[in-house]
Design a binder for these strands. Structure first.
Lengths: 204, 204
DNA sequence: AAAGTAGTTGACTGTTTAGTCAAATTGCGC
DNA sequence: GCGCAATTTGACTAAACAGTCAACTACTTT
């Protein structure tokens, strides 16, 4: 009943791209509306504030990403191969985006979190929530690797935290240096944390 | 000749605190002037823009930090102990700041870099420059550790990059989670990357 | 086709913002 | 105590900004 619209989605897409290519603080509601081709009245029909929109957009984005994570981290894939797939997909994605936008963009979640954590606590909580999901995937891969004797990591949760932290740091470095190639060392670094020599060894 | 003033310094102090406790994008020139107790005309007497001020402030801050780094990373200190000192000082510093501001603030340089890298290229360059300095300290510590046979790291530069990336990621995590305690795993993570079991072993 | 519901619009308000400038002030060397 | 150079001031402009609202529109149900 009533009329239907995809303006809500358009606004979420717009804010995501703006936050990612520029930053949260520098994107204005007017800019978001411009990019979404939506009038400001409609913005306030759907959302209370920029922070509200951003949280909804991050949530929606995660729901899109989730099946990709499920597939990458499927228990049918060899545990360490899951990590390699994850890093490899990240590299390709960042490369495409550099092509498209001219800049390496890094992880929107992590950059956003770093930017707003002392100010927008609702948004901060959403970022924490999604980061916790990502952690789960790494954790289970590492636990499986340990069970398979591929790796000595009885403390899978701790190792997962380390690797996620390192990888998010690496994506941020890639953004700061505007260089995707730094991402190439992702496997090497992660596997070093797991006590393995190289990312290509122990493929079994 | 002419009158003298410390308003230039006051402005740099103000912008540093605002960027760190809030963010670059959310701090306005008016806010900076308020906090510094300086009128806006004076702001534009000294600086061309917010980005110009921020770059000068980061530079000045680094010059203050530099002797502390020189002392922490003095060749007279055992190589791996340099790293431990670095992490330990970071932890204490973040703790004090949480006490003072109510929030974990992380690394102002890294957060700033992540925020502005796609937009303010002058500022981005300054951030890159200071990050490169930090890398040098780690690199030389690792090279010395390798020479002393404490660690197998013929690729000191690469290991240094990994550890810096991990540690900056960790500081960012601390900010996002608003929790200093995550920093406690800094040594463990860094030493894992160096192929050592724990941060407290191999003190010799 | 009437009535109700969901969504849209643009014009509006008041505030905040960056940036400018001529005139005023201060301290120093002489 | 004069003159000059360095710095300060506050009042100003124009633009950008967030947020509001009553009237309008399109769709659906009955």
């Amino acid at each position: 009943m009533g009329r239907v619209s995809d303006n809500r989605k358009k606004l979420m897409d717009a804010v995501l791209e703006l936050i990612w290519t520029c930053s949260y603080g520098s994107t204005t509601i007017d800019q978001i509306c411009d990019k979404a081709q939506v009038r400001k009245g409609s913005f306030y029909y759907y959302f209370d504030s920029k922070a509200d929109l951003a949280a909804a957009a991050m949530e929606a984005q995660w729901e899109i990403l989730r099946p990709q994570y499920d597939s990458m981290f499927s228990p049918t894939v060899a545990p360490l191969q899951r990590l390699r797939n994850y890093f490899e997909l990240g590299y390709r994605f960042q490369r495409e985006n550099k092509e498209k936008y001219g800049c390496v963009l890094g992880c929107p979640l992590f950059s956003l979190g770093a930017e707003i954590s002392t100010q927008e606590h609702g948004l901060q909580k959403k970022v924490q929530e999604i980061l916790a999901y990502k952690l789960k995937y790494l954790e289970s891969a590492i636990r499986d690797a340990h069970a398979a004797g591929l790796v000595e990591a009885p403390d899978a949760a701790s190792k997962a935290r380390m690797i996620l932290t390192y990888y998010e740091g690496l994506l941020t470095q890639a953004r700061i240096q505007n260089d995707v190639e730094v991402l190439k060392e992702a496997s090497e670094g992660a596997f070093a944390m797991l006590g393995l020599k190289t990312g290509t060894a122990a493929v079994a």
